[in-house]
């Protein structure tokens, strides 16, 4: 139990997926103009990463590893993730219309989000068991959501401020992200 807690805290806060591993930067900067859309993206990412880490972990443990096909993991994982996002999208559209309307537009964006593939590969690299992989996946996704919602909140606040002309747009967002990364360094004392 203690190990699981450590994995969850370390994946969500200490080695935050965006601010210290730089995965999913595109959507982090692109979809963080408003808190609501950022939260929607965060929800979609939690959803997809959780399912993807379950499926990737099952495939790795029961197919790739026993057959000695470890080297195929990159190809298999990316295809599984791409197919998974499609299936999830179709399933939601058919069966859970309200959730689909909430997440819909963000789902296709997630296929190219390197965080999903990154989590699947990290699980293999660290030799996590099935339960540990799922905890790591959920933790990472929550870490992503925390940081994108925080960034969106800060961006809403600084929007009306007097920013130097050349820093308007992406530069000031990146400065903000840098300061957040410094703040997240503080969490390394947690473990």
């Amino acid at each position: 139990m203690k190990e699981l807690l450590i994995i969850a805290i370390s994946s969500a806060l200490v080695s935050n997926v965006v601010l210290s591993q730089f995965l999913g930067i595109c959507s982090f900067v692109g979809v963080s103009k408003k808190v609501e859309t950022a939260a929607g993206m965060g929800g979609a990412v939690v959803f997809v990463i959780t399912i993807a880490s379950i499926v990737a972990s099952v495939i790795y443990r029961f197919v790739l590893d026993p057959l000695g096909l470890d080297y195929l993991k990159t190809i298999v994982f990316i295809l599984v993730i791409a197919a998974l996002v499609q299936i999830v999208e179709m399933f939601l559209k058919k069966c859970m219309v309200s959730l689909y309307n909430a997440l819909g537009v963000f789902l296709p964006l997630i296929t190219t989000n390197c965080a999903v593939l990154g989590v699947a590969l990290n699980n293999v690299q660290y030799g996590y068991t099935f339960v540990e992989s799922v905890v790591n996946g959920v933790g990472t996704a929550i870490g992503y959501t925390i940081s994108i919602v925080l960034l969106a909140g800060i961006r809403e606040r600084i929007e009306g401020n007097d920013i130097p002309e050349s820093f308007q747009g992406s530069p000031i967002v990146l400065v903000t992200a840098g300061l957040m990364a410094i703040a997240f360094f503080g969490f390394s004392g947690l473990l």
């Binding site: 210290s20 050349s166 747009g169 992406s170 530069p171 000031i172 990146l174 840098g178 990364a181």
Partner: peptide, 21 residues
């Protein structure tokens, strides 16, 4: 700090700010 994570954001932000300028 420049070889740590925040430094990466700062360097990229200065680069994009220069391009804007």
């Amino acid at each position: 700090i420049f070889i740590l994570a925040p430094g990466a954001f700062f360097v990229l932000s200065i680069l994009t700010a220069l391009q804007n300028k």
